[in-house]
Design a protein around this nucleic acid. Structure first.
Lengths: 211, 211
DNA sequence: GAGAAAATCAACCGAAAGGTGGAGCGTAGT
DNA sequence: ACTACGCTCCACCTTTCGGTTGATTTTCTC
């Protein structure tokens, strides 16, 4: 072996960071060179400390994983990003991959799979865990049909808040007819029976978030 | 110190189990005596291995945390349960506490808080992390108003699937009038504007799950 | 520049959903 | 025994929603 693979961890859970440090420390070709507790921390760290791979969680305070990955592409293009998260919604995966993640792994993956993924990623090969890969493929197959336009997402977000079409029209400065038109398209794209169903489907797919 | 505090871990993520093992191993008064990857595993283990504290995650395959805790109350009443999870929805917390959890901690808690919580729990004192405690108090304050009856939850679950009142009535063998009546009560209890809003509120509170 | 979407709006209809005001039954506490 | 509440149902009315048909404009892609 010539060089150890230098790894930066980014996760807001101390337990997870410690677990990863311990696990990776047991492997001779790995070396954890830094830890970040949120996205901004990760950006700072990556600028200062050279590394081959960053293991990053998607849900982090201050700056979330996807945004951090996107900005990492510019500031540290050489750094490969392996997403390690508990969330496996279609949209989460697609967003992360689009933002420039080299790999995507779920936290319930066995240790050997994690080691494997890191080694693959460090060489520039992309790694998707089997469960994730199949979801992505499903997503691509139907993505031309079920992807909502920005405006449609905007409408659906308000629908999720219990707003009536008339209110939504006022909020977005549209006529009620337009709102209804958007909704019909949304139903068709998502295969939803009604507005409520559309919201639950969109939440499951990660198209909209509650709160 | 007379005896070490014997601890059983229950979490389906290898990373988290390793992290906890490493963290707890650094403390002289802790001893990890067993690891479980799901609820059933935990029940088996608790019967075989004597321990003071079980650290359990709520979302686990096969048998989830809350169910496992409830059954642990019967089979191993002496074992104190400290919930350690990422989820902090009102309903998750209340369910866990009602099932018999002695403590509730979020995974983003700093290590010192975790150590503290384990020591408290092992002595029989209950421990709630500050963030969790405030949520529980909020919940209790309004719980008489926003808690849905089993039937109401049943109705709302079908609403979330995009079913019309008439369909729901057929499924549950009710008249449409009864379904509407349930829904009006649901709106009132949750403070929802319409059925869609009721569903999103219920999902956020953990009253219903999508899928 | 043709074609394909997205985004905007109109008018209309029937079917749901939301809302009001009841009522009866059963069971669990106090 | 009384109260509270969950569960069930009815009638009636108003509003909203879902669905159709059709249209214009912009904006991107090929």
């Amino acid at each position: 072996m010539t060089h150890k693979i230098r790894i930066i961890l980014a996760d807001d859970h101390p337990v997870v960071r410690d677990g990863l440090k311990g696990m990776l420390g047991s492997q001779e070709d790995f070396s954890v060179v830094g830890e970040a507790v949120n996205g901004e921390d990760l950006l700072d760290l990556a600028r200062k400390v050279p590394a081959e791979v960053a293991l990053v969680d998607l849900r982090m305070p201050v700056l979330d994983g996807v945004s951090a990955i996107a900005r990492l592409r510019e500031s540290c293009p050489a750094l490969r990003v392996l997403v390690l998260t508990t969330y496996d919604s279609d949209a989460d995966i697609r967003r992360a991959v689009e933002a420039g993640a080299t790999g995507y792994l779920l936290k319930d993956a066995p240790r050997e799979e994690l080691f494997n993924a890191i080694r693959q990623t460090s060489r520039g090969y992309s790694y998707l865990s089997p469960a994730v890969a199949s979801r992505l493929v499903d997503g691509v197959r139907s993505s031309d049909y079920d992807e909502l336009s920005p405006r449609e997402v905007e409408v659906l977000t308000l629908v999720a808040q219990g707003r009536a079409n008339k209110e939504i029209a006022r909020s977005l400065r549209l006529s009620e007819a337009t709102v209804k038109s958007h909704l019909l398209h949304i139903f068709e794209k998502l295969g939803a029976a009604d507005r409520t169903h559309a919201v639950t489907i969109a939440v499951r797919k990660g198209i909209i978030r509650l709160e």
